[in-house]
Design a protein around this nucleic acid. Structure first.
Lengths: 341, 341
DNA sequence: TTGAAAGCGCTAACAT
DNA sequence: ATGTTAGCGCTTTCAA
């Protein structure tokens, strides 16, 4: 039922080989034959069988993206935006995108292995790098192409794009100390995430540079969800001497913290300042709008994807390492009073 | 470099065929040979070449999901949750997931066509059905397997799961009229979306049943984002006789509406009631928590995926059509006053 | 400028 | 219980 080269060859009265070469625009095929082959192919609606092509060519023209999900109610705006970036870029460059959803762990690594060995994909995009990232170690060791959004703690001899989280969080911290805040709480993410590591470092360094002490009681850790932000902030704000500012290491937790503060009757921006990191679309139209650090997630998705495909095509391990400088977006969550009506 | 059946055959001293059959546990292979083949395969780390298998078998063990995105800053919690559902289910049933990102339109349809003809996938999952859905028409006409999350206006002779949006929105409407609201605004989504169609119908019917008039001035349409909800609600609430309640056809717009109301100095739940639809994770931990209709998005993703794979495996077009009854989740956005501290 | 033949790795029909 | 042969649809030598 599907149209094959053979069908075209029969119609044109030439061999399968010639048809194949005509379609690939080889220059040892006569213009007439090319034209005829093309028109028949068009007429028949020929589309090459990719499995035959891939069996032959040893590459899949597919990139793999294994999403590190957390539980069923997984809903992180970061991922839809990032996915759209790599999806669009891959399509633009003629690549397919194979997606898996796996919580970090053993099964996740097995999925990488399976996809490498099958071989289902030509390369991987890795996100949310970890301190000792098994995914990166495995792929490096297999010499399998990949590009990561994020660095590792050591051995950064691979292609990556990363934001300067230290710098970004430094901007936030200075912004708050400039406003006169003395008791600043920090909503951290689990320590093995590299983004959390850099952002935390930026916060701690920022405090130091502005001559402030680090108060361990105000450093708490959550799972990056709004729910976690809500609960941690509730705890912080109901203690005997609550912080005057809460710095969350991502927007989702900041949003939760805002809700918590409001639930406690506080006016965010006036009674307590709250900041995020990422500048997800939600940050702009919440109330009050969230002061945060902007990261061009969609563009990073595109970049990472393009770098990967170039790496695959050149079949070289040309290293590219890019650190992006994020920018501060000041909004009303640190500026109140808000109700100016 | 990759291990093939031939490598194993050489080691075992049997033919490739025998090795293949041993690995597939055929019963015309001696137990001894089976054991030996398996242990060698294990030792060598054999993984079958899927392209060879697929070329042979005519199926891809892959399902396709073409995400209807809207612009680069696409970030709809619906999709990450739904994607996780289908991703996990597909993995559980041994299927791969091929994802594309395309705004609705001609290119989108071409992507379907390409994937059908290559053939890259064995079936598709379709979401956010449209009134006259070209995707469904195309796949039906090609007799290509698919399962949709959503119905069409006519010709619903295909497998789908859908929520009863009319019923769900009826629950919302009754809830608000029970609370005594007389001027209820409605934030609609573009008319061609079927989910918008049913929900709108549920709202209009609900008003009628509760003996209320429909006020066309209070019916406005947005693009389902928080930003749209924010702007529409701002317009509604600043007119001479503003509504006392705003019903949004999805949570994201409701969240925007809440921010707009608060920006205007109103207390949501007391001065104005606001409702959503979907019960995304964000709805629970915003402030005030959002009254909405719960849809088990993750589970629907799983269901739809399972139905598709069953349909593919049976190679029959066994029809299955499921309508889920959603439930009302009443929270403080319709109940205030909130600041009880 | 074109075609015949081989082979990618696998499965299946048909021997033996 | 095992091997031989053929073929999936394509690309790529090598000859003509």
């Amino acid at each position: 039922m599907a149209v094959t080269l053979k069908d075209i060859a029969l119609r044109v009265g030439k061999s399968v080989t010639t048809v194949s070469r005509a379609l690939h625009d080889f220059d040892d095929v006569s213009p007439d034959t090319k034209a005829e082959v093309r028109s028949i192919a068009e007429e028949l609606g020929y589309i090459p069988n990719i499995h035959a092509q891939r069996l032959q060519s040893k590459h899949t023209d597919t990139i793999g993206f294994i999403m590190p999900t957390f539980g069923p109610r997984f809903s992180d705006p970061f991922f839809s935006e990032f996915l759209t970036g790599i999806g669009n870029q891959a399509a633009k460059m003629g690549f397919d995108l194979l997606v898996s959803t796996r919580p970090p762990g053993t099964m996740e690594l097995q999925t990488y292995e399976k996809n490498v060995r099958s071989p289902r994909v030509d390369g991987f995009i890795i996100v949310r790098t970890r301190q000792d990232d098994q995914r990166i170690k495995f792929l490096s060791q297999m010499k399998f192409p990949f590009v990561a959004f994020g660095r590792m703690l050591d051995h950064n001899d691979y292609a990556y794009v990363d934001e300067d989280g230290e710098y970004g969080m430094g901007l936030i911290t200075s912004h708050l100390t400039d406003l006169g805040h003395k008791r600043i709480a920090y909503l951290d993410a689990p320590g093995h995430f590299m983004f959390a590591h850099y952002r935390r470092q930026g916060f701690l360094d920022g405090l130091k540079e502005n001559g402030m002490e680090i108060n361990q009681d105000l450093m708490v850790t959550g799972d990056m969800t709004q729910r976690a932000g809500y609960q941690l902030a509730t705890d912080l704000l109901t203690q005997e001497s609550p912080p005057t500012a809460i710095v969350a290491c991502n927007d989702l937790m900041a949003l939760g913290a805002i809700s918590a503060a409001q639930q406690l009757g506080l006016t965010v921006g006036k009674d307590v300042a709250i900041t995020g990191f990422d500048n997800i679309p939600l940050a702009e139209h919440c109330h009050p709008p969230l002061t945060t650090v902007h990261q061009p997630i969609y563009q990073i998705g595109e970049m990472v994807c393009e770098m990967l495909i170039k790496q695959i095509r050149a079949e070289s391990l040309e290293q590219e390492q890019i650190i992006l400088q994020p920018s501060l977006v000041v909004r009303q969550s640190t500026l109140g009073p808000i109700n100016t009506l």
